[in-house]
Design a protein around this nucleic acid. Sequence first.
DNA 1: TAAGTTAGTTGCAGTGTGCCACTAAGTAGC
DNA 2: GCTACTTAGTGGCACACTGCAACTAACTTA
Lengths: 241, 241
Amino acid sequence: MKKQPLAANLDFPRPYTTVDVAIFSVAGDALRVLLVERSREDGGPFAGCWALPGGFIDIERDADLRHCALRKLREKTGLAAGYLEQLGSWGSATRDPRGWSATHAYFALLPAAAEPRAGANAAEVCWFPVIGKGVRVRLAFDHAEILAAALERLRNKVEYTSLPAFLVPKEFTLTELQRAYETVLGRRLEKSAFRTRVLATRLVEPVDKLRAGPNRPARVYRLSNPGAPVFFARPFSPRGK
Amino acid sequence: MKKQPLAANLDFPRPYTTVDVAIFSVAGDALRVLLVERSREDGGPFAGCWALPGGFIDIERDADLRHCALRKLREKTGLAAGYLEQLGSWGSATRDPRGWSATHAYFALLPAAAEPRAGANAAEVCWFPVIGKGVRVRLAFDHAEILAAALERLRNKVEYTSLPAFLVPKEFTLTELQRAYETVLGRRLEKSAFRTRVLATRLVEPVDKLRAGPNRPARVYRLSNPGAPVFFARPFSPRGK
DNA sequence: TAAGTTAGTTGCAGTGTGCCACTAAGTAGC
DNA sequence: GCTACTTAGTGGCACACTGCAACTAACTTA
C-alpha cells in the first residue's frame, strides 16, 4: 500500500505556490510588458533580477486564484484590469532553488492611456518593450518561458478575437484599433477586411463624435459590450500563407 | 512594511496542491470520461463520490506537473496518453473542506481500442458517458466545473484542430475519423468538406490497405506526424450560422 | 487653389466551406 | 447473373470572407 493516508495526515511536504501576471499594454507602436526588480536585500533567489509581478498566495486574503492575480495587478499598477485571463501553470522541482514550486500564471491587458505604477513602489517597476518572443533582459525563474507562452497565446488569440480592444482607450477610432492589432501581431492588416470584420460583428458602436486632426476626421467608436471579448469566424490570414 | 520576509521565513501556510486529469475516449458513438470513486475508508472529503482521477503532487517522485499528470494517467489506465494538454488551474479557499487548495487540471485523449484500467484497482474506476456539459453523477470538489471546462475546450478545439485523431486507433478510415469528430462535436459534418480539409493538410497518409466490409472497402490511413496535432485554417462551421 | 495625408468605400479574384448530386465498389437476395 | 442496397469517394456550384488595389471624401497647410 503506497497510498498516502489522505485525511489522516496532510502534513507531507507541499509545493510553494505562487501567482504571476504578465501585464501588457501598448505605447506608441510597441507592445510592452510590466516587470518588477527582485529585492537585493531579502536574501531571496534571483536578487536584482527582473521578473513578472507575482508572489505567494496569501491564504488569509485571497479568496481564489483570480483574486490573487487581481491583487498582484492592483499592487503593481494601481489599476483595474481591462482583461485578465488564466494562462497556465508551471511547476517543477527545479524552477525555484528553494524547492518544489508551482506558479499559476495569468496575463492581463491594460488600455494605452492608463498611467501605471500609481499605487506601488515605483522604483522597482518598469515597462519593457517586447521584442520577438520576450524582452532583452534576463528574467528570474522560468519567467522567460512564461512570458513567451503569454505572447504566443496573445498573438494567437488576436487573430480571431477582439482582445486588442482592451489595449485602446474607451473611445477610439477604427484606425487606432487596427494599430493595436498590428502592434500585437507585428504585421500590417488590410484596412478594408479589418473594417468589414469589426463592423460586421457588432463589436463596436459609433459615438457621436469625430476625432479631429490634420486631415480628414475619423469617426469615434466604443465597445458595444465592454468586458466580453468577441470571437471572429476566421483568423485574419488563413494560416497556410 | 507588509512585505513577507521571503527567504527568512518560508513557513507561512501553503495551499494543498493536486493534479487532476480528465481522460476522454470514444466508445461506439459516445464520448466518455474516466472517473474514480473516492475512498469511503480514509476519512477524506466526498467519500464514495465520483471524481476525476488525480491527487496530491508527490514531491519525491514528480519532476514537474506534466509528469505528475502522466503518472495519474498511468496509474488509472495503465496506458500512455495519446494526447495530454494542460487545461488550467482551479484554486480557492473553499473548494476543499480541508482548506485552501489548488489543482492543476489536464485533459487527455485515449484511442478507442485501448483497454483501460489494466494496471489499477479496477473496481473504483469507471467510464461514464458524457451528456451535454458533463456526466449524470454528482462529482466531488469542483470537478463538475473542471469537466465542463475540459469539454468546452475539447469541443472548441475540435473545430479547428486534428485532436480527434487521438481518439481513433493507429490505422483508420476517413469515415472513422469523421465519426470521431462528430462524436465529440455532437453534430454531423459534411463528408466532402471534411475529406478536402483532412487531405489538404497532410494530416494523414494512406496505408496500402483496404478496410473490408459488407460494401465498398475504404482506404486505410494513418497519421503523417503522430504526436503533433494539426491546426486548420478555419473552424468547421463559420460560427455565425 | 493645389498638394498632401488620412478616412472610408467599392470592386474583384482567391479560397475553403455547405450543399447536393453523382459515380464506384462491394454484399445480399433472388 | 441480375437487381437492390449500402457505404466510399468525387465533382460542381453558391456563399462568405479575406486579400488586394483602386477609388472617393474631408480636412490642413503652403
